[in-house]
Simulated assay, not measured.
Amino acid sequence: MSQSSPVDPAKDAAARAAVALVQNGMKLGLGTGSTANIFVDRLAERVHAEGMDLICASTSKATAEQARGLGLVVEDLNDIGWLDLTIDGADEVDPDLNLIKGGGAAHLREKIVATASDRMVVVADQGKVVDRLGAFKLPVEVIAFGWKTTRRQIERALERLELADRPVILREKDGQPVITDEGNLILDLDLGQIPDAPQLARALSAIAGVVEHGLFLDICNLAIIGRADGSVVELEREDLQ
């Protein structure tokens, strides 16, 4: 196991249920984050126990390193082409299976991998399920060049959407800006609540300097929600239409 501390039972339950969805011969997308890390560990256990033949694409350098260290085959998405399934975590999941992702600063690659898959499955604990997105700060990946101007453009867009005076914060770690795997910066939008997620997604995508935002709308097909008692609840987007 790659975890040095005890594994959260809710996250572990979701990860184990997701591993059961994997079939031999699949081309599989591997997510990033605490629950996704547990999934990778559990997947490796099953692959070695059953001699499964999988090809994996990773959503981050950290996940790729973890997976290769566990003996999984990880290749470049360009070489794989299309994926059968991506399993990833989420920072928030709403009743329609719309997501906020990017707490691990990997949402650009995560969205590329998720949308290059037949299905995207989210693994999460009950605490990630919300009635409406927005309590978790919305990550927006931006080009370093002119990032302060980009931040002002984002603030103006929020004003037009009646989200004025919401903090737009440069993400830092140890006093230094967080740099993504693609060499970009992250701005975290402290919105509290998002009244119209599709409208906000369109507004952010239209801003020069914005590379990608952490709103994953109409992408997730299934959410496996782990509970502290080791049980899981499965939410399918088709059930909610």
Rank of each mutant, 00 (worst) to 15 (best):
K101M: 02
C220W: 09
D96A: 08
A105R: 07
Q66W: 00
I186Y: 14
L85P: 06
G134Y: 05
D84T: 11
A49W: 02
E172A: 08
E172L: 06
G104A: 00
G69P: 02
Q153V: 04
E159R: 14
G29T: 11
L21I: 04
V47Y: 12
L30N: 14
I169N: 11
V178P: 03
R46C: 01
G89T: 05
E238S: 13
F136S: 11
E141Q: 15
R16T: 14
R237T: 10
M120H: 02
A116H: 15
L215Y: 05
V121L: 08
E45C: 01
L54R: 06
K128Y: 04
D94W: 00
A197Y: 08
V47W: 10
I194A: 14
I154G: 07
E45Y: 01
L170H: 06
A90D: 03
V129Q: 13
R202M: 12
P198S: 11
L99T: 06
R42Q: 13
L187A: 12
L189S: 13
L215H: 05
K61T: 12
T150G: 08
K27I: 03
D188Y: 11
N78C: 06
A10Q: 11
I112P: 00
R166L: 03
L108G: 10
I80M: 03
G89E: 01
L72R: 03
A49S: 13
L217H: 08
P198H: 06
N78F: 09
A144L: 13
S5H: 10
I207N: 06
D181S: 04
S58N: 05
